[in-house]
Design a protein around this nucleic acid. Structure first.
Lengths: 271, 271
DNA sequence: GAGTGGTCTAGACCACCTC
DNA sequence: AGGTGGTCTAGACCACTCT
């Protein structure tokens, strides 16, 4: 009889760490609205008692939730539920464009796969993926729309064995999430380095993105690696920032004052 | 007799937490080269014994160093020194453009303050800073150069009391770091929300940044708050991404060998 | 097999915030 | 004054890595 209400207690037999299980339970409460935006979570001690865990374990769960943007922690005051659902594409998030835009919102992302095949990799991809010169790899070119509007064009370069996995999935049909497919196959993104530039749309790129030549676009280059620092993806994306909201979150998540006023937290913070 | 070599042991009387002191000692070893890039740090247990701390405290220090990009941790293998010095402007970093570009490198940042005064704030700033409608605030407009090349133009909007602090500092002369000044005054950045767009340089902005009208620029908007979620800065920056290397770091810092993808710096990007 | 970090426990003291 | 989170200790067991 751990967990409050009718929720499941922590599964002590599961291979999944307790702190991840607890974070998942709390995340579900926030999504379900049991914990409304701005609501204060029970104190760490209270959570520890309720779920029959050590406080250090509870803190680990809260740390995870904060990192993922589900809660905001304030020293000596408590943890508050935030709603990470009204942000745009989180540039330093572990999720991809698809997940960020679709998850928990009424946004429709459609994908047209323009190219998906094994080819000799360009030098930039070979270097980023730390492969021998002249290596082949899997190339994935996709044009993606947000609610019917052309949003971005991306090129992914994947190492051969990763590409083989992807080619057998539903990603080449335009239906699957590349990020999700890779995660399920064991390629969980542990880290990535990305650069951001402003470039002018030219020639074919302008046509694809339905803009006039010269229109400013965001160009993002990214190298991703797993927990063993093994690079498994290098991609370049051209983004219409007039269509896609691109964001970067630093440190503690926002108190949700960007769009809608937050009565709870707002009142506590104000004099 | 804690600390290896001649380094100071942890100061048990200091108000600064042990884990921060330990992180600082290790950071210095990395900067000094005692721990070369790619070197493996002593194990957590070893560090705990050496510095006479509990392992949990050592882990907290390592977590901090990883977050700041000084080390890379790999499960069950150890922590490795990384060199965060060859990156560009870290978009999700807690440091500003000045600190990122100058720290530990031979880059010269010059600043021209074009405006520094108390004025009625625009609606966007009032909203971001959570001030009453019609509030006044401090405005700081600056043109900044990197090694003599025009790099960016920024406008900061600060709440009255924060602005008063800044106006009495050396920031208006173009010599001080705004970020550093705020930090010393107790406004430590706990979090920030930033948006990134690609826009075309127009009119006065094109003149200021010495580019042809229509040239793509990165436009970044940012709201910063402290540990109490109190907003203390809203700013907008127009960046020449052909001059400034703008990066985003996700999760675990990159391995020493694989740095961020290189943007087309120096290549003229205009019609 | 020895070493390492990941996870977990059951305490403790303190400064700071709210009441 | 009592509650809260920040910090710290001294253990423990385990799966995985290295050699």
């Amino acid at each position: 009889m751990s967990g409050p209400d009718g929720s499941e207690p922590i599964n002590r037999a599961s291979a999944q760490p307790y702190y991840q299980q607890l974070a998942e339970r709390i995340r579900q409460q926030i999504m379900a609205g049991t914990l409304a935006r701005g609501d204060r979570l029970p104190s760490e001690g209270e959570l520890a008692t309720t779920w029959d865990l050590a406080r250090a374990t509870v803190r680990e769960a809260l740390r995870l939730l904060e990192e993922q943007g589900w809660i905001t922690r304030i020293a000596r005051r408590g943890a508050f539920a935030t709603m990470p659902s009204q942000r745009g594409w989180l540039l330093q998030g572990r999720e991809g464009f698809f997940e960020d835009e679709v998850e928990g919102r009424q946004r429709r992302v459609t994908t047209h796969v323009l190219r998906a095949e094994l080819v000799p990799l360009p030098a930039s991809a070979v270097e980023a993926l730390q492969l021998p010169p002249g290596s082949h790899g899997y190339v994935l070119e996709r044009l993606r729309e947000l609610d019917g509007e052309v949003a971005l064009f991306s090129i992914n370069y994947l190492p051969p064995q990763v590409g083989a996995l992807v080619s057998r999935s539903d990603v080449p049909t335009g239906e699957g999430s590349l990020n999700g497919t890779l995660r399920k196959a064991g390629y969980a993104l542990a880290g990535a380095a990305r650069t951001v530039e402003a470039v002018a749309a030219q020639g074919e790129m302008a046509d694809r993105l339905r803009v006039r030549p010269g229109t400013p676009l965001l160009k993002i280059k990214s190298t991703s690696w797993d927990a063993n620092l093994q690079s498994f993806d290098y991609h370049e994306v051209w983004v219409r920032s007039d269509v896609v909201h691109v964001e970067v979150q630093v440190g503690t998540p926002a108190p949700a004052h960007a769009s809608a006023p937050s009565p709870e937290i707002g009142r506590i913070v104000s004099p």
